[in-house]
Write a protein that binds this DNA or RNA. Structure first.
Lengths: 100, 100
DNA sequence: TTGGCATATTCCTGTCAAGGCATATCATGC
DNA sequence: GCATGATATGCCTTGACAGGAATATGCCAA
């Protein structure tokens, strides 16, 4: 599954957001998300397949961490579009929300 | 449909890429993509619903153009992750700085 | 108003992925 | 080895969505 598709699911974006705090065991994610354990496990599998997270085995636990590579690729994908909202800012006078 | 989901379909990203060249009638997109006309029309509808394109009526034609607003939001969504690939360049695995 | 071109919509069907539940695997401590 | 906790996997059902073909709508010209 490509990273665009992997990111299409809200709960998977929530997982990534949680992993910004650093490496975490799967159980911590289950607790934080208040989602069924098998569901989280399956979403983690998708994120792994898309290269968005890495897993490290620590005894009985799996420690998940963010792998930013596909996000950097997404950033790259956005590049040719940036001129468009830069233009919009100039032309329409800064009513694009920059505080968010 | 949210923009993440809208962007998950490759042909829709192709449409956006074509629209970087500027406003174009639906028919030009059909030709460029070599896809069935109803298919392109339906994908344009999804892109419209997600706010990624605007449409302007010109006689019998519909002229589509890029609306960068959701892409700017995506750029914003990426922001808290940028530190991660910046860090990766500096020092591997050093995610201790919680800048967010 | 009729015909023709451009585009949208509808219906149908197949596929793929998510959710829920049960169960399997794996490592650890006793 | 056995029980236990942590995590993954399998099966099943359901719903969402894409593709294709046919048709509808809308606009214009003659």
């Amino acid at each position: 599954m490509d990273s665009f598709t992997a990111l299409a699911e809200p709960i998977r974006r929530d997982i990534l957001a949680l992993l910004r705090q650093g490496e975490q065991p799967a159980g911590a994610l289950v607790d934080a998300l208040a989602a069924p354990q098998p569901s989280v496990s399956k979403h983690l599998k998708v994120l792994r397949a898309a290269g968005l997270v890495r897993v490290r085995i620590d005894g009985p636990r799996r420690l998940y961490s963010l792998d930013p590579t596909p996000l950097a690729a997404l950033d790259d994908w956005l590049r040719p579009y940036r001129a468009f909202w830069a233009d919009k800012l100039d032309a329409l006078g800064d009513h694009l929300n920059r505080s968010d």
